[in-house]
Design a protein around this nucleic acid. Structure first.
Length: 267
DNA sequence: TTAAGTGTTGCTCT
DNA sequence: AAGAGCAACACTTA
């Protein structure tokens, strides 16, 4: 679930509610989600640090601290972030909590415990180390750069959109949505898309991701607030194309299920 | 009731 | 060597 739009919402939550706050304590409720440091070391390194900024690259969130360094978060399959008020109990599945003065806090939730939190010297170094591709919404990542990547990729376009080393931020759900909006079949080899379709796809990628952010993806009601014409609310067994009403088709790529309209997205 | 499906990443296998 | 398959996990649906 947490793909680029969802993580963007989390990033804004940190920016709006946590920026400027000093961490008084880091409470590790589940050491399993922390990578590279012990719970004790994490607490020691975070105590007294102030949150300066929040930024996102692909599906990763970076909480930047004064004096350098950042907390890097990945949300796996169903993680999320919640700002907690004074006296508020930890939401279910809270794995880590950053405590601020006056009793407020930031809770990292992760029911399935897939996903992780770590410390890094700098987001840029972290991104380089993981060899992540450009963020899908980075303004420097233009049609020209997008086109160059597709031209050199022969796998199906869906697999290419989801490859974090090529383009960062798009997962199983939004790749289906983007391809539906662009009316392109998920199995089309990326390097076989003509110039016009590549431009349509690039535009659909931007529109879809930006619209999802505007609709508050990541929040509980996110999916329900998506505009008419989106595939996601119908993306299930027995779902129908929001455009033509045709029963959605399903496919499998690398163990991931894809949903698409056989009418609007023909081969 | 047991079994399959879900979502992301990283590893193994071919 | 690219591509498939699976493990990690907890929960829901068939």
């Amino acid at each position: 679930m947490p793909e680029l739009p969802d993580v963007e919402i989390f990033s804004r939550l940190v920016r709006n509610h946590c920026r400027g706050h000093v961490i008084t304590k880091a409470t590790v409720l589940d050491p399993g989600i922390i990578e590279g440091v012990s719970g004790r070391a994490l607490d020691q390194r975070l105590r007294g640090r102030r949150i300066e900024a929040s930024r996102r690259h692909g599906k990763y969130l970076f909480i930047e601290l004064n004096g350098g360094g950042a907390v890097a978060m990945h949300f796996g399959t169903n993680g999320s972030l919640r700002f907690t008020a004074e006296g508020e109990a930890d939401p279910p599945y809270t794995r880590l909590r950053l405590n601020f003065a006056r009793g407020t806090g930031l809770a990292y939730l992760n029911p399935r415990r897939i996903g992780r939190v770590s410390l890094c010297e700098s987001p840029d170094a972290f991104i380089a180390h993981l060899d992540l591709g450009p963020d899908a919404l980075d303004s420097a990542f233009d049609l020209r750069a997008f086109s160059a990547i597709l031209k050199e990729s022969k796998p199906g376009i869906k697999a290419v959109l989801m490859d974090q080393m090529l383009i960062a931020g798009i997962g199983n759900i939004y790749s289906d949505e983007i391809l539906f909006q662009a009316r392109i079949n998920p199995d089309t080899p990326a390097n076989r898309l003509d110039t016009k379709r590549v431009a349509q796809l690039f535009s659909a990628m931007h529109d879809t991701l930006e619209t999802a952010i505007l609709c508050g993806a990541g929040s509980e009601q996110g999916a329900e607030r998506l505009p008419k014409g989106f595939l996601i609310p119908q993306r299930r067994k027995g779902g129908h194309c929001p455009g033509c009403g045709t029963s959605l088709a399903t496919g499998k790529t690398g163990g991931r299920s894809s949903y698409f309209c056989p009418q609007c997205q023909p081969h």
